[in-house]
């Protein structure tokens, strides 16, 4: 049970990273980005490209930091893939979402466009990498290490947890202590007042996509390190991502963090009682529960 909880925390932190980006987009750009799961997939696959193709070409050796499953290639690939995902997010905004925004389209139209973008991205992944599942490292035995209290974790998972914590802390510092971060929070609160205060809301939008995209990319890579890559992985993330965002309160990054962890833990612990195939249904059940009990989420957010 404790072991499941630990797995839940690892999985939950991946969902949380994605959910934080999603909730920022919700709060500042005012629509549900149904392509967010596929942005996570983009991160994972671009990292695969670097690890399997680009970096070997550049002569970066294949090493492994025992007992982890990865080495220098992944270390270099992670920031590059995050940047690539952020760049894609910005390009998508310029090409699709910003024109709709300037046209004052309704949030539903933006969400529908995001749905189309999601399928676009997924089909590109199918074309470039094919339908079969892949891993960063084939045929690796993932040997767990033992922590006190008889907890079993894989070494990769510890790194994922640490990196997630690092990213979340960096985001916290940015949002709380920097002028731009405060401007972002202000724009999420009251975009009209922000504009009157002289804040360039278009630049804030750009920043939101950069951060959201980068975090989504990281989340996808972390997931794929611990599990595998499939072209359909993006769709599978949507339910837990949105459930986490709603659980925490739309617009609240800290709510998304809490929501992600809760969803992750509950999903994993549920496998002790019911068929693991039902994990997405568990996220859905949690979502329904929150909608019944407290629709505005744990941290209130905006109604």
């Amino acid at each position: 049970m404790l072991e499941l909880t630990v797995y839940g925390i690892v999985y939950g932190s991946v969902i949380a990273l994605g959910a934080i980006g999603l909730t920022l987009i919700y709060g500042i750009l005012r629509f549900g980005n149904f392509a967010h799961g596929d942005l996570m997939a983009v991160g994972a696959y671009v990292a695969l490209f670097f690890v399997a193709v680009a970096l070997p070409l550049l002569g970066i050796p294949e090493t492994r930091f025992e007992p982890l499953s990865f080495g220098w290639r992944m270390v270099i690939a992670i920031p590059l893939a995050m940047a690539a995902t952020a760049l894609l997010a910005v390009v998508l905004d310029r090409a699709v979402y910003r024109p709709l925004r300037h046209r004052k389209s309704s949030p539903v139209m933006l969400s529908m466009a995001a749905l189309g973008v999601a399928f676009l991205i997924r089909s590109l992944i199918y074309i470039l990498w094919g339908p079969d599942p892949t891993r960063y490292v084939e045929g690796l035995l993932r040997i767990p290490i033992y922590l006190p209290f008889d907890i079993k974790v894989r070494p990769d998972q510890v790194v994922i947890l640490v990196l997630t914590l690092l990213l979340v802390m960096m985001l916290y510092l940015f949002l709380q202590k920097t002028r731009l971060g405060k401007a972002m929070r202000a724009t999420a609160d009251n975009p009209d007042l922000a504009r009157i205060s002289g804040i360039n809301t278009e630049r804030i939008a750009l920043l939101t996509w950069v951060i959201g995209g980068a975090l989504a990319g990281a989340a996808g890579i972390f997931w794929a390190i611990d599990s595998q890559l499939t072209p359909e992985m993006g769709w599978g993330f949507l339910l837990p991502l949105f459930a986490a965002v709603i659980l925490g309160g739309i617009g609240s990054p800290y709510g998304a963090l809490a929501g992600g962890l809760i969803i992750g833990i509950v999903q994993q612990v549920s496998t002790a009682f019911i068929n693991p195939a039902y994990k997405p249904a568990v996220a859905f059940a949690l979502l329904i529960l929150i909608l019944l009990v407290r629709p505005q989420g744990i941290f209130g957010g905006r109604s």
Partner: peptide, 19 residues
């Protein structure tokens, strides 16, 4: 509730039925 809550719930229903 909000209109996009319906959207997410429909994904949930579809997934649950499939599973």
């Amino acid at each position: 509730l909000r209109e996009d809550y319906l959207a997410i719930a429909t994904i949930g229903v579809a997934e649950t039925i499939r599973i």
